[in-house]
């Protein structure tokens, strides 16, 4: 029996209410992408169907309006399964001036035999604030993953901030000590920071590195926490450590929403 290929497009938009608080302006679910409001300004993605399966095309659009804050999480990890052809998950994001988006779903798990494509395009206004975590797990326990190609593009005021692609399941790079080494998961968190131009030259942002994780100040106004790990639990722990080291503004809603502690002194 062949399953009908799924085409789904979910939309999420915020706006300001008359008290100046964030309200969810549009919340269009499209199964299997189902959205549930769990708190003011907080949405959970609830998967109401298996997959994505090969051949499915899923799309999520997020628009965070000027001066609003939105947090997007998910109830469970996403299990990418094989099917008829390639599956696609595309996310388009627009974060307006003075707006904050925290996107921290559970990991994407690449089951054996899957053929998955993920694209994320994020357009940030110059003073928008972003916390974006992405975790990819190479197969369920003891399983070799299928193929996945992800591309992430973030721009600030039209200028490129971060562009990165990951290819999993490619014989050229699998197991390469230059790419993922012996890791079974890869993750990264992009956190916007103040514009480097505003910082005194004498105080360059320092990179930090620990076992399997690096905190990497980008050339533009952001910092990337990049981690490799043996399993999803270790990956989250490494990313969380890195996230806690990033000095985002103390009053940033992003800090409060993700429960970031102020970083310990950078120069102990």
């Amino acid at each position: 029996m062949t399953k009908a290929l799924v085409r789904a497009r979910a939309i999420l938009r915020t706006g300001l209410d008359d008290r100046g608080l964030t309200r969810i302006e549009t919340m269009r679910s499209d199964p299997p992408l189902t959205l549930r409001q769990t708190a003011p300004g907080e949405i959970h993605l609830v998967s109401t169907g298996a997959g994505p399966l090969g051949g499915d095309h899923l799309r999520l659009d997020i628009e965070v309006a000027e001066g609003t804050s939105l947090t997007v999480r998910s109830i469970a990890s996403t299990l990418v399964l094989p099917g008829t052809g390639r599956s696609l998950m595309e996310i388009h994001v627009d974060v307006a001036s003075g707006a904050t988006l925290v996107f921290a779903p559970e990991p994407t798990v690449l089951a054996a035999g899957c053929d998955h494509r993920m694209t994320t395009t994020i357009a940030l206004a110059p003073d928008a604030s972003l916390f974006w975590r992405e975790e990819i797990v190479f197969g369920r326990h003891g399983e070799r993953p299928g193929r996945c190609h992800s591309r992430f593009d973030a721009t600030v005021g039209g200028r490129p901030l971060l562009r990165q692609e990951f290819v999993v399941g490619d014989p050229e790079s699998d197991g390469s000590p230059a790419v993922f080494g012996t890791a079974r998961c890869v993750g990264s968190t992009l956190i916007t920071t103040e514009t480097p131009a505003d910082e005194p030259k004498s105080d360059p942002r320092e990179a930090e590195v620990a076992e399997g994780v690096a905190v990497l100040p980008l050339a533009g106004p952001g910092t990337l926490v990049s981690a490799l790990a043996a399993d999803a639990v270790e990956l989250r722990a490494r990313l969380s450590w890195g996230e806690s080291r990033v000095s985002i503004q103390a009053d940033s809603p992003a800090r409060a929403t993700v429960g970031l502690r102020p970083p310990a002194s950078r120069f102990p």
Binding site: F180, A183, S188, V213, L216
Partner: peptide, 18 residues
Amino acid sequence: WSALPAHAAPALDLLAEQ
């Protein structure tokens, strides 16, 4: 230019910083 390849190598990043 915006769509040029952007293949990342997290292990190289870690190695470079270490």
